[in-house]
Simulated assay, not measured.
Amino acid sequence: MNILMYSHDTYGLGHIRRSMALAQNILAEEHNILILTGSPIVGRFDFPHGIDFVRIPGMIKQNNDLYVPHSIKVAPEMALAIRQNIILATAKAFKPSLFLVDKAPLGLKREVVPTLRWLREHCPQTHVVLGLRDIMDSPESTITEWRKKNIYEALDTLYSEIWVYGSRDIYDPVREYDIPAHIAPKMHFTGYIPRQIPRFQHRPRLRHGMNIAPGEKLVLVTAGGGGDGYKVVDTYLTMLETLPHPPFKSMIVTGPMLAENLYDQLAARARKLKVRICKFYRKMEKAILAADCVVSMGGYNTMCEIVCAARPSLIIPRSVPREEQLIRARLFAARGLLEYIPWETVEPAPMLERIVKLLHEPGPYEAALADFPMTAFEIINQRIQSFGAQA
């Protein structure tokens, strides 16, 4: 089966990391998987045999509606035209049995619509699936945007199925986003997407390899892609700077999209504190498992990694330009899975207080996390197998 995946990747690492996790776990001997992506760092990931990517020109989101080219010095309209043509040409040549679109039903600025229409007309046997994370945004904002952009019509006419990478018991987009009754049956709740976390018994070896002494506590700070993570890292370093002798070891991963001048400022402060800092860490899953506490923003993928590793965490969710992270943090905190402080109000003293609590009382969080179901791969593979049975 030829599987084509579209990931517009205009901000952060979330889309490409989600697509990579899905591709690696639905890969079978009879599958060929191509990922269409605008991620500027896609080449840093390890691609197993059977998976490859088609790089489209990168775009950067400046706000919810404004996107500009990441590198090439051309008008946004030209960059979008190039992306649209590459997407359509790839679909025509590859002729996928499954076309999986990540998050954006129409693509960036409707760039995937010509491909969706071509597949409907020329390859009606292709299963066209929209993959949505658990939470898109607040109900009010999402409904307004979807009505304005005719998203409900697209869900009705252009997609065979909609996969929601979350649990309806935790957040129900059918109700929250006012999904019409004739579209709701298309929606399949897969559960959250697990990550390839090393087995827990390997944790001592991982910690030894990271020079963490027995009994020493490690706090891992990660800001996702880094584009909006400066405040989290800055607050954490300010917290450390108030402590004559921090009672724990620290590691900071800022994300590769943090501006160079801001990274240099943070790195200089970290070096004075003898704290390890880097922009990108290839084996993030191992670092999360090795940590005793994770301080992070509240993006979908990082949250899935933290849950899979069953690590106590302090989440600093942003609410701009979307409230998705804040909503998710509140829901997870209500289940005893984590602690959180809103991005807008985070300060060094409350941050230290929460971290100390998580380091000294990890048991309840670890127990709640260990019982959290991560079923996406099982459900998605069942759906794909059903496509083969229908063929």
Rank of each mutant, 00 (worst) to 15 (best):
Q84V: 08
N85Q: 15
N85P: 08
I86H: 00
I86G: 01
I87M: 00
I87Y: 00
L88I: 10
A89N: 09
A89S: 10
T90S: 06
P96Y: 08
S97G: 14
L98I: 11
L98Y: 09
L98V: 11
F99A: 06
F99C: 07
F99I: 05
L100A: 13
D102E: 12
K103L: 10
P105V: 00
P105K: 03
L106N: 10
G107C: 00
L108N: 01
L108Y: 00
R110A: 04
E111F: 02
E111V: 04
V112Q: 04
V112T: 07
V113S: 07
V113Y: 05
P114Q: 08
P114D: 07
T115G: 05
L119K: 03
R120Y: 07
E121S: 03
H122S: 12
H122R: 13
P124W: 02
P124G: 00
Q125G: 05
T126C: 09
H127D: 15
V128Q: 06
G131C: 12
G131P: 09
L132E: 00
R133I: 04
R133P: 02
I135H: 00
M136Q: 11
D137Q: 07
S138T: 07
P139W: 03
P139T: 03
P139H: 04
T142G: 05
T142C: 05
E145W: 05
W146I: 04
K148F: 13
K148V: 12
K148Q: 13
N150V: 15
Y152K: 12
E153N: 14
E153S: 15
A154H: 09
L155H: 01
D156T: 12
T157P: 15
T157L: 15
T157K: 15
L158F: 12
S160L: 07
E161Y: 04
Y165K: 02
G166N: 02
S167P: 00
R168C: 09
R168K: 14
I170A: 01
Y171M: 03
P173Q: 10
V174Q: 12
R175D: 12
D178Q: 14
I179R: 08
P180N: 15
H182G: 07
H182V: 02
H182C: 07
I183M: 11
A184R: 11
P185V: 10
K186Y: 11
K186D: 11
M187E: 08
M187N: 09
M187L: 13
M187Y: 11
H188I: 10
H188D: 04
G191S: 01
Y192C: 08
I193H: 08
I193A: 10
I193D: 06
P194Q: 08
P194G: 06
I197L: 06
I197C: 06
P198E: 04
P198L: 07
F200I: 14
F200C: 13
Q201A: 14
R203T: 02
R205C: 14
R205M: 14
L206C: 01
H208S: 12
H208G: 10
